[in-house]
């Protein structure tokens, strides 16, 4: 028996909107730790790791570890039917081939339940090693989204370089080239507007903008984004989910042949 009650249901709606274009089908894993997911896109270039900790739910009952295969597009369709202020409860019985999403309006005058068919998904969990990153950039998530969108109108790939000067995003395409440099800036009115750069070693890595643009669908989840880079390792683009957990996107770099 599984019953997870999330008062801020809009968080789950935003989570689905952020990953449904990158991943088609995925297993949601439920344990005493929380509600989580790890999945790769179909070409195995990017990986998404989601965690919603059990403490973040108003009610969290998970009698035994459960893995539920879901089509994320279908799940997003159902969650779209929840109001932004609705409380969402996820329910499943042991051995059942369905999951139920229950939506309650804040005033309790409208209660809906949507039952979705589960699916068998063959997916292997990958071990993500704990890494000390050479450079960690924290910046406003809207700024990062703007940069990825702007650069993708010029080129297909972005080179992200971190030096003492700041973080540079560069692209080249048929019509020309573009460079955007963001310097560390902590003298801002709101801490979330700051750009903070921690660098141990200079880093320069090349990535496909098609994927970074997918990641920025998570912008509504958090006002800041953290980009962790090490030479010759996948970049981690992390959006924290208010006191509950995170969505982390890992993207394999382009490597010189």
């Amino acid at each position: 028996m599984l019953e997870l009650r999330l008062v801020q249901g809009s968080l789950l709606k935003k989570v689905l909107e952020s990953i449904k274009e990158l991943v088609n089908d995925a297993n949601f894993d439920c344990s005493s730790t929380g509600f989580s997911l790890q999945a790769m896109d179909s070409s195995h270039v990017a990986l998404v790791a989601l965690l919603l900790r059990s403490e973040g739910f108003e009610h969290y009952r998970c009698d035994r570890n459960l893995s539920m295969g879901m089509n994320l597009n279908n799940m997003a369709k159902m969650l779209k039917c929840a109001g932004n202020d609705d409380i969402i409860t996820i329910k499943a019985d042991d051995g059942s081939d369905t999951v139920t999403f229950m939506f309650e309006s804040p005033t309790q005058d409208k209660i809906s339940d949507f039952e979705m068919k589960l699916m068998d998904i063959d997916s292997e969990h990958l071990g993500i090693p704990e890494a000390e990153y050479d450079a960690i950039v924290r910046m406003p998530s809207a700024e990062f989204a703007r940069i990825c969108k702007d650069l993708s109108s010029i080129g297909d790939t972005v080179v992200i370089s971190v030096t003492k000067e700041g973080v540079k995003f560069s692209t080249k395409g048929d019509i020309g080239a573009a460079n955007i440099v963001c310097r560390q800036n902590t003298t801002v009115d709101k801490p979330d507007d700051a750009t903070v750069i921690e660098m141990k070693e200079p880093v320069s890595l090349q990535f496909a903008l098609r994927y970074t643009n997918f990641f920025t669908k998570a912008t509504p989840l958090s006002s800041t984004v953290t980009i962790s880079l090490s030479n010759e390792l996948p970049v981690v683009v992390e959006y924290k989910i208010a006191e509950m957990g995170y969505v982390r996107f890992y993207l394999a770099p382009k490597i010189e042949e």
Binding site: M40, L126, G127, Y250, K254
Partner: peptide, 14 residues
């Protein structure tokens, strides 16, 4: 030229 690497090149099975 550069080649797109895959995630499985870096992360192994858990």
């Amino acid at each position: 030229g550069s080649k797109q690497a895959t995630i499985t090149k870096f992360f192994g099975k858990a």
